[in-house]
Design a protein around this nucleic acid. Structure first.
Lengths: 198, 198
DNA sequence: GTCTATACATGGATAGAC
DNA sequence: GTCTATCCATGTATAGAC
């Protein structure tokens, strides 16, 4: 139960869990099918039976990541808070998700920031665009209400997402000395000159 | 001459150029020795003669990257400017280097941000620490001169480097619609609430 | 649905001639 | 120093029995 990334306990979820663990350590290309099935405790053909091939596993994991992102975005948009608080909630949700499934996030994050490295093709930029669009939307709502000073919405969004990406990156580098307050501190630092003081 | 990453034109530099091109497209693990020697126009044993093996090529490239970083840092520290201007110069130097050798930087950048992916071990975090230390140093100089408001030096440095990393990342994603002014704009945005207005 | 055993391709590295 | 030819390990994927 404890190390489970996904719900049920059939061969599918055992394979997905094993794949996430290994992909997040060594990457897709450097992980062999043999290792995956060994860690999952099944034999090779089981993998080819449930997922079409190694690439099928990869796609299953990324589809799951998409759903997570959508859910985070929905939660943030639905919250009845101010724009600044919405940004804080976004940061918090992302960090919570990261704490709960660190290797899953390490993997996704490295895919988005890294090179193809022999991975199957997948529209990874979508994750990024989705986040930028969300923050731009939040900025514009806040701007209308006089919560923020004038700035280019795209630049504002890039700043906010860039800072958060960097924090995630730092946490990926050394999860041991994780400073769970850093994202919030850096967000405040970045917002210092952008908020309207009234 | 035009696509050269390194000085002379012997087999060494042809191999290094070819390796950089391919590594930056597909990553280390996914690039085969066969491809490298084909692009370099030499045969396999030449690679094993000059560099001990594939890993030797990798190390040669990263050592070169280290020297570049040191040179940028020296230039920034030696400039007689204010702290804010030093940060701008840092951003400019990095961007210049990126414009001049895009695939070289794409590769280094993805190594730092990505996962091991079967790469040889190399102290990549050093690149990152070096930059953070530099910016913290600049901040403290500026703080003494009353140029900046009070902030945690480490957080300040994280913010500045994080923003720049993100800009590099955006440029790596789509070099075509490169917005060469973005780094400076985002730097200003981030510094808005941190500078002393006198 | 799940296993054992195996086919088949590719990649890193080297032997040995020139 | 550079080549051709080759060795050998590893990896993906499947055939065929249960």
């Amino acid at each position: 139960m404890e190390q489970d990334h996904f719900s049920n306990n059939g061969p599918q979820s055992k394979l997905i869990d094993a794949a996430i663990t290994l992909f997040s350590e060594k990457g897709y290309a450097a992980t062999s099918v043999r290792e995956i099935v060994e860690l999952a405790g099944v034999s090779k053909p089981v993998l080819y039976y449930y997922f079409k091939n190694k690439e099928g596993l990869f796609n299953a994991i990324l589809d799951e990541a998409s759903e997570w992102q959508e859910q985070i975005i929905r939660n943030v948009l639905d919250s009845p808070q101010s724009a600044t608080e919405k940004l804080l909630i976004l940061y918090t949700h992302i960090d919570d998700a990261f704490q709960e499934h660190p290797d899953f996030f390490r993997f996704i994050h490295s895919l988005i920031l890294g090179l193809p490295q022999g991975n199957p093709v997948y529209d990874l930029e979508r994750f990024h665009r989705r986040m930028i669009d969300l923050v731009r939307e939040i900025y514009q709502q806040g701007r209308v209400k006089g919560e923020f000073l004038e700035a280019d919405p795209e630049d504002f969004a890039s700043l906010i997402i860039g800072v958060n990406d960097f924090c995630l990156h730092l946490e990926c580098l050394n999860p041991e000395k994780g400073d769970s307050e850093r994202p919030k501190r850096l967000l405040n630092l970045a917002l210092k000159g952008l908020k309207n003081k009234d």
